[in-house]
Amino acid sequence: MKEKDILDAIKKIVTPYTQRKEGLENFSKETDFIKDLEVNSANLVDVILDVEDKFDIEIDNDSMEGMLTVGDAKNIIERKLASA
């Protein structure tokens, strides 16, 4: 799967939980879910569950712990897809 496809999928997943919509305008690997998009911390769990469903992977709590930016999420998805 291409990096761009993964980033597009993450953007689509996170959009409904984004409280600061202007944060989506310069969506990049550096985008921080809480600081830039103001996703509330409970919805961060939904983001992770949606990522699991979309990519058919399981994100354990240790991986989830460092999933704070779009780039973190992308790296975890790529790692899990490679080991699947």
């Binding site: 509330n40 409970a42 919805n43 769990v45 939904d46 569950l49 709590n61 989830m64």
Partner: peptide, 16 residues
């Protein structure tokens, strides 16, 4: 909170 989150969603409680 009741509007923003569905706590009964599969996997939600287990993650937290």
């Amino acid at each position: 909170a009741f509007k923003q989150s569905n706590w009964q969603r599969r996997g939600f409680l287990q993650k937290i």
